[in-house]
Simulated scan of single mutants.
Amino acid sequence: MKLVKHEDYRHPPNVVKFEVHLNMSKFDIKNYLEKIYNVPVACICTRIKDGGYGQLYNGNPVRRPDIKFAYITLGLNQTFQFPKIEDKDKTQPKELEGQKEVEEELKKFDSNIQKKIQNKPNIPLWFGI
């Protein structure tokens, strides 16, 4: 089971959406949440989203797998909200402090290679470098 965020915000705060295995029934989902996590469950609604067809592979369309979602209504006036995760410290890490110097050295090296290539247009890159 994987906790999934709702696409739209019309659901009440006591409804939680899970992505579950296709073979799990409503009874299995309810037992899983109540026995393992001690979460009271009032109601469960499930739906299966069609995977559809994806890109062609060797001229044949590829079928994506179906996905089953479970909408669980929590009991006893419980609500659930996703935590807000923000970057409090937006400064660059210490590992990236010397990155500008390295980028400048690479640009100089690349420009030297480009000059060598201009003098030898018909010779492959790996031969003269």
Rank of each mutant, 00 (worst) to 15 (best):
S111T: 06
V41C: 02
K17D: 07
V15E: 00
Q114F: 01
E95N: 05
V16C: 01
Q92S: 14
E104C: 03
D66F: 08
Y53H: 13
G54T: 07
N31K: 04
A70S: 10
T73W: 03
F127W: 12
F109Q: 11
Q78H: 11
G52Q: 13
K84P: 02
E104K: 14
F80I: 06
I117V: 13
G52C: 08
K68Y: 03
L3V: 12
E34C: 03
L125W: 08
V15M: 04
L106T: 04
D66R: 08
E103P: 01
N77D: 11
L74R: 06
V15W: 09
P124I: 05
Y53I: 08
K107A: 15
P40H: 00
K107M: 12
W126D: 14
F127C: 11
V39R: 00
L106V: 12
K49C: 13
G54Y: 07
K49G: 03
L76Q: 10
H11V: 11
P124M: 03
N31E: 03
P83Q: 14
I67N: 04
Y37W: 11
Q78L: 11
F82K: 04
Y53M: 14
N112V: 07
P40C: 01
P121V: 09
K5L: 06
D66H: 12
G54C: 07
I48Q: 08
A70C: 05
I44E: 03
N112I: 05
F82S: 06
E86Q: 15
P121I: 09
K30L: 01
E95S: 12
I129N: 08
Q55L: 14
Q118I: 09
G98P: 00
C45N: 15
Q92H: 07
S111P: 04
G128Q: 12
L96P: 00
P61I: 03
K5V: 03
E97D: 09
T46Y: 04
K88M: 13
L74K: 04
L76F: 12
I72R: 01
V41F: 02
Q114V: 06
K35Y: 01
N23Q: 05
D66I: 09
Q78W: 05
M1V: 09
D110W: 04
E7Q: 11
P121S: 07
E34F: 00
C43P: 02
T73R: 04
E103F: 07
V16D: 01
N14D: 15
L3Y: 04
P93W: 03
Q118N: 09
K88R: 15
I72L: 02
E105N: 07
T73A: 06
N122V: 09
E101Q: 10
F127K: 14
Q114E: 10
K100H: 10
S111L: 09
A70D: 00
D50W: 10
D28R: 00
Q99Y: 13
Y57C: 11
K2H: 08
G51Q: 13
V62L: 10
S111K: 10
T46K: 01
P13C: 03
S25Q: 01
E97M: 06
K68W: 02
